[in-house]
Simulated scan of single mutants.
Amino acid sequence: MLEKLMVYFEFSFVRYALIAAVLIALCSSLLGVTLVLKRFSFIGDGLSHVAFGAMAVATALKLTNNMLLIMPVTIIAAIILLIGGKNKKIKGDAAIAVISVGALAIGYLVMNLFSSSGNVSGDVCSTLFGSTSILTLTIKDVYLCVALSIAVIIIFCVFYNKIFAVTFDENFAKATGIKVGAYNFLIAVTIAVIIVLAMNLVGSLLISALIIFPALSAMRLFKSFKSVIIFSAVFSVVCTVVGLLASILAGTPVGSTIVASDIAGFIICLALSSVKRGVRV
């Protein structure tokens, strides 16, 4: 098996996929903890569907660089969900549902009306489930992924204390002089960037797994915010690498295999948590 992996790593597209997967998993885990604690776990679904709709429109418009439309549209949607979603008329979960379903339907409609391929169903399936997208990255895609991932990590590290305060108690953070709106805006922009990057890894429908499972697994074993963040990052990277390598060796869909790896890791953490509680008793 090791020899077979070494043969695969001689191909540049496999190395590109591994680099992108590690960076995307790391960024997803960092912001995932914040979103889970703020009870916005499913924002990944909403934003991924928005990105899918924007991608369909960009394809129909025959834009040479889809990111020019996908990124700003996803960022705007993230701001609406994280900040505008607190509107009393449309609560956060309802706002996510409205935007998610609407964007997904419009995206699928546009792809059918302005199809540039003879296999619309295959294109949609690949986009939604990320079957092989991560294995078709170019060197430019990798450079973009590295640059955006480094930016997300730097932002999280520099504003760690402020993000921590806004995550746990916005009212207290506001009382201490922290500009809550500005940091919610920052969180919205960074999560939008992560969602767009993660589409190539696991597809639109499975992005929430990268956000939810590492955070929930870490919370089963640790209590402090910093410990949860660190374990979540390690858990996410390990599960993603295992899932990616397993998909390459077994010939299974990349996105689904990575999510299956996350689920297995989550079950292990649940078992360890039960053992830990039993030892304490």
Rank of each mutant, 00 (worst) to 15 (best):
V166L: 02
N161F: 04
V152P: 07
L148Q: 04
I163R: 02
V120E: 03
D141L: 06
I134T: 09
S149R: 04
G122H: 10
F164G: 00
I134L: 15
N161L: 10
C125K: 13
I150D: 01
T127F: 12
I154A: 11
S121D: 13
V124H: 05
V158L: 13
S121I: 09
C125V: 11
A151P: 00
S133M: 12
K162I: 14
S133C: 00
S126R: 13
C145I: 15
T136G: 01
L128V: 08
F129C: 04
I153E: 03
N161I: 04
T132D: 11
D123F: 12
F129M: 05
A151G: 01
I134A: 10
T136E: 10
T136Y: 09
I153N: 01
S149Q: 02
I163N: 05
T136A: 13
N119C: 00
V158I: 15
G130P: 06
V158R: 08
T132R: 06
L144R: 08
C145F: 05
L135A: 05
C125S: 14
V120D: 02
G122A: 12
Y143D: 11
F129I: 03
S126G: 15
I134G: 05
N119Y: 10
K140P: 00
V152T: 06
T136V: 09
K162Q: 13
A151I: 10
F164W: 08
F156I: 02
K140V: 13
S149M: 04
V124A: 12
L148N: 01
V124K: 11
Y160E: 08
I163P: 04
D123L: 12
F164D: 07
I155Y: 04
D123R: 06
N119I: 01
V158H: 03
I154D: 06
L137T: 09
S133Y: 00
L144P: 00
T136H: 08
L148M: 14
A165D: 12
Y143W: 12
L144I: 13
L135G: 03
K140S: 15
C125A: 14
N119A: 10
L137D: 06
D123P: 00
V142S: 07
A147I: 14
K162L: 05
L144Y: 14
N119F: 09
Y143N: 12
T132E: 08
I150W: 03
S121F: 09
Y160V: 04
S149C: 07
D141K: 06
A147Y: 09
T132G: 00
I153D: 01
Y160Q: 02
Y160P: 02
L135F: 03
C145P: 01
Y160L: 11
F164A: 01
F159M: 04
S149P: 07
I150A: 11
D141G: 08
I155V: 15
